[in-house]
Amino acid sequence: MHNVILIIIMALVTMFTRFLPFIVFKKNTPPFVKYLGQVLPTAIIGMLVVYCLKDIELLKYPFAIKEIIAVILVIVLQAKTRNSIISILCGTLIYMIM
């Protein structure tokens, strides 16, 4: 029973973090929220890239060579093809093979 309540708490708190801004800014969106909606995505994606790569060891053997090669491959393929399926799948396959 305790476990069931814990799961419900987790679910409610998680929902709260997602719904809060939508409730606060329900009636009309203030200009600064509109502005943040334009610039935050790019910045946060940048942050998520850093987050995903936080465990790599640049100074120790093998110097994160797998990650570096795969990330460069994704960037190059994305810039050339502008097709994220191609760049993501190729990058991941190369990473798995290495």
Binding site: T42, G46, C52, Q78, I88, T92, Y95
Partner: peptide, 15 residues
């Protein structure tokens, strides 16, 4: 790594 690749690709595209 597909998650990392997804974020890197999105970042590149936005750039």
């Amino acid at each position: 790594f597909s998650m990392t690749a997804l974020f890197v690709a999105t970042f590149t595209e936005q750039w």
